[in-house]
């Protein structure tokens, strides 16, 4: 009897320990690094927005095509770096992500999200856009969004890299990276990324660039350490 009570108390203590927030939010391993390219990337051309004066006047200098974004030291921007295998996918973050149309550009050009995560699409321009994500795995839709229209709220349920375009302004071009993980990052122009809060385990980390394809590497996290992982993608001219 006494043993039983002790055992029960022990169980309760153990259960409580398990349920209590085990660690501060940022604990866990980190994978950090830089994405660069070798070879010669295509030269990005300026976009002529003359057909849409309300957008053209928002840019003092012409906007460049964004399908390859580079920085000093062969840094590669707008690369999605994410956990493609290992660990549990988990529920999508409660916090949604936002895709904005401003100056007839998509901001950001590449938006990463977890499958099932809330996506808000805004139009901050004085012109009508149509948002046309050309998904193949998820249902394909195409909606107009005139100036002042409320944001479009959607979710994508299946992982897929979805090209997004506006048929009215054909230079507008971007990507939704719908992933099976909440651990993802999109590199800035300096090519750097950081995936945080990784529980111990073995992971495959993948880098994706819209022109240069994907590259994967393995990494093992044992505790709260920071693992360094760099990617070098081969630039192709077309």
């Amino acid at each position: 009897m006494r043993m039983k009570i002790l055992a029960s108390v022990g169980l309760v203590v153990l259960t409580t320990m398990a349920l209590a927030p085990a660690r501060p939010p940022m604990a866990g391993g980190t994978v950090t690094g830089k994405v660069t390219y070798t070879g010669t990337p295509p030269k990005m051309k300026p976009i002529d927005m003359a057909k849409e004066p309300s957008c053209a006047k928002e840019h003092a200098t012409p906007v460049m095509n964004e399908s390859v974004v580079t920085g000093p030291g062969n840094a590669l921007g707008d690369v999605v770096v994410y956990i493609s295998a290992g660990g549990a996918a988990g529920a999508p973050p409660a916090q949604g992500v936002t895709f904005d149309q401003k100056g007839c550009q998509y901001i950001p050009h590449v938006l990463a999200m977890q499958a099932g995560q809330q996506l808000e699409i805004r139009n901050d321009d004085q012109t009508s856009h149509n948002i046309h994500p050309m998904s193949k795995v998820n249902p394909e839709w195409n909606k107009s969004q005139p100036p002042g229209a409320p944001p479009i709220q959607v979710k994508y349920e299946k992982p897929e890299f979805i090209p997004v375009k506006c048929n009215v302004h054909p230079w507008m071009h971007g990507y939704f990276a719908v992933l099976n993980t909440s651990h993802s990052a999109v590199t800035g122009a300096d090519g750097s990324f950081s995936l945080t809060g990784l529980p111990p385990g073995k992971y495959t980390v993948t880098a994706w660039q819209e022109r240069f394809g994907t590259q994967s590497q393995e990494v093992t996290i044992t505790g709260n350490e920071t693992a360094k992982l760099d990617f070098v993608l081969k630039a192709t001219e077309y």
């Binding site: 149509n130 948002i131 046309h132 394909e140 839709w141 195409n142 909606k143 107009s144 969004q145 005139p146 229209a149 409320p150 479009i152 048929n167 009215v168």
Partner: peptide
């Protein structure tokens, strides 16, 4: 409804 798969968008939100 728009014509899905074409540039013709749906206007039912607006």
């Amino acid at each position: 409804t728009g014509l899905d798969g074409t540039p013709m968008a749906s206007f039912s939100d607006n």
